[in-house]
Design a protein around this nucleic acid. Structure first.
Ligand code: SF4
Ligand code: SF4
Lengths: 161, 161
DNA sequence: TAAATATGGACCCATGATGTCCATGATAAA
DNA sequence: TTTATCATGGACATCATGGGTCCATATTTA
């Protein structure tokens, strides 16, 4: 259970776009040599990012990519969800087993008025809770945050001299 | 990016063991029909759980599995790490690219005394931080917790009548 | 128009998840 | 001691997905 390499590439590509000047779009070629990934593969990733409104793309001579919105509005969660999809971390695969009856209905039979009762599974409750915590943290960190931190470190390094 | 079905099965198997009486071990056959999974496959999972000290197994007539320690000491994180492994959620795959130089050294050259400086990557810092939050939540929820909640619900249902 | 650039479909390969089957070993009951 | 019961682990089989390449096409600017 790991994030794919594509997520790695996407994050680094966005960081490069962020560091480049605004309104100065950078082509797939430059991104490719900077990240050390083939143009073919990287273009697939950039295409996804464009479809989800993270970057803008302009074809033709001197074309390329640029961030579609300020770097402080692009969170890690945004990027990850574009690449990895939005499926839940945990999805029950045997809700028709005997186990399910026990856990979901807690050994009791609530048959009045035929309500299915939608109590909500306890296992999913834990897993979804965990996922929420993960997502909250990823939502609080943006591309801009990384660039800011890098800048601070740079200054600190200079002051030490 | 999703937890595997094996994790699902492992959790449910442990819940079943927890609900069964202590010192009354349950065989792979019973687990198999309860969860609706083949004996062959489920036994692979139970074997893993045994190797990591989550359950105990005794062969022979009237043999089977039982929890190796109290249910309140078996966390969701324990189970997940046994099945999914202990690799990090994010592992950098291109630390020799040009990007890396920029981010890890923040555009500066700390060449005094040849220290590699081990500053720590900012991207990994975010991802590992997120992973810590995820793990913390999973560490706080145990097999016993699920059983307790199910019990509460059962009581609540009875009181309403 | 021509060169540069992004887009998207078709395809390939390696790896891992899921699952089955069987030979072997260990244990307790008869 | 014998035997039925049960767990263990290796060898496969199958399938989905990640990771990646190649090429034909469309779009834009010089
Ligand atoms: S109790 Fe929850 S996880 Fe278990 S089978 Fe039912 S829905 Fe699935
Ligand atoms: S900056 Fe971090 S994530 Fe990026 S290449 Fe270096 S180690 Fe990897």
């Amino acid at each position: 259970m790991q994030y794919s390499k594509s997520t790695d590439y996407a994050l680094h590509a966005l960081l490069h776009l962020g560091q480049s000047d605004r309104h100065n779009n950078v082509g797939i070629k430059e991104l490719s040599v900077t990240l050390g990934v083939s143009e073919s593969y990287l273009s697939k990733i950039m295409s996804k990012l464009r479809q989800d409104g993270i970057v803008r793309a302009v074809p033709g001579v001197n074309g390329g990519y640029e961030l579609a919105r300020p770097a402080e509005e692009i969170t890690f969660l945004d990027v990850i969800q574009v690449i990895e999809g939005r499926q839940h971390l945990f999805e029950c695969s045997n809700s028709n087993s005997q186990q399910h009856q026990l856990l979901a209905e807690a050994g009791d039979v609530p048959q009045e008025h035929e309500r299915p009762k939608k109590i909500g599974c306890l296992v999913e409750k834990v897993m979804d809770g965990a996922e929420q915590h993960l997502h909250q943290y990823l939502r609080e960190h943006t591309i801009q945050w990384v660039m800011d931190e890098a800048f601070k470190r740079c200054n600190h390094e200079v002051n030490k001299k």
